[in-house]
């Protein structure tokens, strides 16, 4: 498969993942493009050895929590959440979606990887290059802020 074919086929799904990671269209597009550009750089190698989609998703998660994005976001929008944000397309709990925006990037990334990408805490730890304990503490802190109840049974089942 050629790089452009990959982008054409998988671009939309990757962008949706970026949207869930970042919470807004502009950052989602930026993140997706940046990660795809890096994939393009490494394409000849990744295509042979690795899973390109996994590579680009990992890159996106890491970029999302990385310093330069935080600083850039700071410069662009001062990271103030869009207080008036509503999304008519969201049928469900727009309150919860908006509250997700208030999480620091790492906490949000952990939740997205766990509840959207359905990864185990160990997988998240490896992907983000942090310890499993950090994954758990970040997730717990985030869930607490969002007032999401976690039962032991659920924890076991999810993990």
């Amino acid at each position: 498969m050629e790089f452009t074919d990959f982008v054409a086929v998988r671009g939309s799904a990757l962008y949706r993942y970026g949207y869930v990671l970042t919470g807004n269209a502009e950052d989602a597009a930026d993140l997706t493009q940046e990660a795809l550009m890096r994939l393009g750089d490494a394409w000849s190698r990744i295509r042979k050895k690795d899973d390109p989609e996994g590579y680009v998703r990992t890159t996106m998660a890491r970029l999302h929590i990385s310093l330069w994005r935080r600083l850039r976001r700071e410069r662009l929008v001062a990271a103030v959440p869009e207080a008036a944000y509503t999304d008519d397309h969201l049928g469900g709990d727009t309150g919860l979606w908006n509250e997700l925006k208030t999480l620091p990037p790492k906490q949000r990334a952990v939740l997205v990887l766990r509840y959207y990408e359905d990864l185990s805490d160990q997988e998240i730890a490896e992907l983000l290059g942090i310890s499993r304990g950090t994954v758990r503490s970040q997730a717990a802190r985030a869930l607490d802020k969002l007032r999401v109840r976690v039962t032991e049974a659920e924890t076991e089942a999810v993990r």
Binding site: V20, G92, D93, L96, W97, Y115, Y116, V148
Partner: peptide, 15 residues
């Protein structure tokens, strides 16, 4: 804590 993990999963998928 009045929300469930299932709600979080659904909100992310819907978004």
């Amino acid at each position: 804590n009045d929300r469930s993990e299932a709600e979080l999963i659904r909100v992310l998928a819907d978004a």
